[in-house]
Design a protein around this nucleic acid. Structure first.
Lengths: 185, 185
DNA sequence: AAATTGACCAAAATTCTTTTTTGGTCATTC
DNA sequence: GAATGACCAAAAAAGAATTTTGGTCAATTT
């Protein structure tokens, strides 16, 4: 069956990319893990990049889903924002692929990965923005426009979670909530 | 006169560091610009690093001074914070040295420069913190502790000034003010 | 005839070798 | 005693040689 092989290639590639990164993953090894000849991969994907971005899209879809299920129609605005951010970050925390990409971008500065990561960031920002706009449609008034608000929330969250902890004790969840809540007013 | 030569060395080094960066500045060229023999430099400074950090300390002193003069005893809390941030950023904007260091850290990843830049950031944070604490002594109540507040203000400001502008139109000053003001409550 | 393979190739990356540059010293000069 | 610049070891850069890698395609299998 044709789909079976394609699945195996995707599975193998996902494993390798998240274990060794983009650069260190070779098409030969993916083929070997997938028990497929190298040429076969090229009947499904026309380059290493396209294979990579297929896997990344899959990951992004999972991420969006995790965020979606975290949001409750009835909950308050800031509760939803918070839940969504937790979902996104929780997902990131135990998803090898995105972690590896972050490392590789920093250490190796791989061009492809760097570009992909800004796309991931863009998607997260768009997602936050869409949540804000949905809330706005419900009648909530926000001080700034959704694009700016999404940007602020995202940057603040990242700063509090990752930058702050590089030099300080982790902040309690309530403090983070409070700060984000103050942002969205 | 001994001081004359030392001055010339510092001047030449400052010029070269801010024009070409740390790595691309050679002791030989500094000597040449300063019209001094290479050995002479080593009677004043015992390494390239120490020469570099002397110059950087000078720059930091200037930066602190710029911020200090921006602050008015009588002005309101958020006015002072704003004035200080403007001073810091305005200073940075037209100070070649710090700009070059930022570039070099990103592009070359020079270890010495990377370390120095975290020190610069630490100093800016400490400065903001001290301003906050001075205001606090005047009786102003802040929601979070000064360290966290300084961190938040700094990160937000950087995000709004530099990250935001990579993808959007620059924000009007009033918007930035408003956001910062909301932070410090 | 459609799918699959793996030997094959050019280009890129890596390693090894040679050459040049650089930070730092110190005997000599001023 | 301050200043110099030829000198050196170490590091960096450049170049040459070698290996690895992404991608192709004629041959084979299904």
């Amino acid at each position: 069956m044709i789909t079976d092989k394609k699945e195996r290639v995707i599975e193998a590639a996902a494993l390798s990319f998240s274990q060794f990164g983009f650069k260190a993953t070779t098409m030969a090894s993916v083929a070997k893990i997938a028990k497929v000849a190298k040429g076969t991969i090229y009947t499904f994907f026309d380059s290493k990049e396209s294979l990579f971005s297929t896997i990344l899209e899959r990951t992004m879809r999972q991420l969006r889903q995790a965020a979606d299920t975290a949001i409750q129609e009835e909950a308050a605005f800031h509760e939803n924002i918070q839940a969504m951010l937790d979902a996104i970050l929780g997902f990131r925390e135990n998803h090898q692929l995105l972690i590896k990409m972050g490392q590789e971008a920093k250490e190796l500065g791989t061009a492809e990965v760097l570009e992909i990561l800004t796309q991931v960031e863009r998607q997260i920002l768009d997602y936050i923005k869409s949540v804000i706009m949905k809330e706005k449609a419900k009648g909530i008034v926000t001080k700034h426009d959704p694009e700016l608000l999404a940007f602020l929330v995202y940057k603040t969250y990242i700063a509090l979670i990752s930058d702050w902890e590089r030099q300080h004790e982790p902040l309690p969840k309530e403090t983070i909530s409070e700060i984000i809540r103050a942002q969205i007013h």
